Computed example of a mutant assay.
Amino acid sequence: MLWRLKYMITHVIKEGENLWGISQKYGVPVQMIMKQNNLTSRIIYIGQTLIIPTMEQIHIVKSGDTLYDISQTYGISVKELMKTNNLTNTVIYVGQKLIIPKKGEWYIVQSGDTLFAISRRYGVSVQDIVDANNLSDVGYIYVGQTLYIPPSSEPSQPTEPPEVNVYIVKPGDSLNSISIQYNVPIDTLIIINNISDPDNIYIGQMLIVPIVPETGEYHIVVPGDTLTKIAEYYTVNRSELMRINGLTDPNKIRVGQVLMLPPPVSV
């Protein structure tokens, strides 16, 4: 199968539209639309043409293929397949390129991330991520970068649960409502998302929201944290802190990561 990042889909702004609605229509984060169109604000106007970055998975028809077989392979319906490719009947031919509706998701790169670690988390290969995002330098990704993660073509394997949610701000949201919904202190949301004005979050903004446990004591990693500092602050044993959180490298913790805390040591 082939993945490609197609930047030539255009959208002409109509009355009543905003970036949030457009991002929802195409399944693309607001930040990516702004970056692709060099927008410095969320102000758009009627008649403006935007370039929408979209992901396409391409299937090249082989001898013996039918739309039904292809739909079963990718877990979609024949109707979806026909609609996406503007097909009026089920006749296809060898060598024909069919667009498969995307089933992957977006991921925001965090401090300490590598392509290998991200690929392990989502059960896809590094090459799949590289191809899907047209990355020229496999060793270079940066904090805040938005990557498209294609769905795994392999059978599902148990993977580590994600340590954070990526939450997209909706109309009516505030930091207070988000902190209540996810049981994360507002101050923590401000720090890990580098928010300068807590009263000014915008529709379509992507926020890192830690997944906190229902029981037990825990610490949410913020910029500048180290395992040594955390252990000293809570008066816990650093080795035990690593053990209960399944850490093998004391230098690899990330902003927003939730660490369970062992019982404090006696002084």
Rank of each mutant, 00 (worst) to 15 (best):
L175H: 13
I44Y: 13
L5M: 04
D69Y: 07
Y26R: 05
H11M: 02
W3V: 07
S77E: 11
P150D: 00
V166H: 14
I76D: 06
R42M: 06
I33G: 06
T73W: 11
G16F: 12
I203M: 15
N37F: 14
N18M: 02
Q36V: 05
R121G: 04
Q36G: 05
P250I: 07
N245P: 14
K35W: 09
S71A: 13
P53R: 09
L67M: 06
K25M: 11
L81T: 01
I99E: 08
Y182N: 05
T215N: 14
Y234V: 06
Y74E: 06
R121I: 04
S136G: 03
I208Q: 04
M1V: 11
E214P: 03
Q72M: 10
I118W: 14
L115F: 09
I99V: 13
Y93P: 01
S125I: 00
S152C: 02
I178C: 09
V12T: 15
L147C: 04
V124S: 05
I208A: 00
L115Y: 13
P171W: 13
V78T: 11
L241G: 13
P250F: 04
D197Y: 09
S152A: 06
I253N: 13
D187K: 00
S125N: 03
Y68G: 00
T248R: 13
L81C: 02
M206C: 02
K102G: 08
A231H: 02
L50M: 14
G47T: 03
Q145S: 08
V221W: 10
D128R: 06
L19Y: 08
R120N: 14
I186W: 05
S41K: 15
K170P: 10
P53N: 09
Q36S: 04
E80M: 08
I178S: 09
Q96T: 04
Q24V: 06
E160N: 15
M260F: 13
T49A: 10
E214F: 14
I230K: 10
L5P: 01
G27V: 01
V61W: 07
L19F: 07
H11Q: 06
V236W: 01
V164H: 08
P155L: 14
S196L: 12
Y148K: 07
K62Y: 09
T248W: 05
S125P: 01
W3S: 07
N38E: 08
Q36T: 11
S77Q: 10
Q24K: 15
N38D: 07
G139P: 02
L259V: 12
Y45C: 00
K14S: 08
I190A: 02
I211P: 07
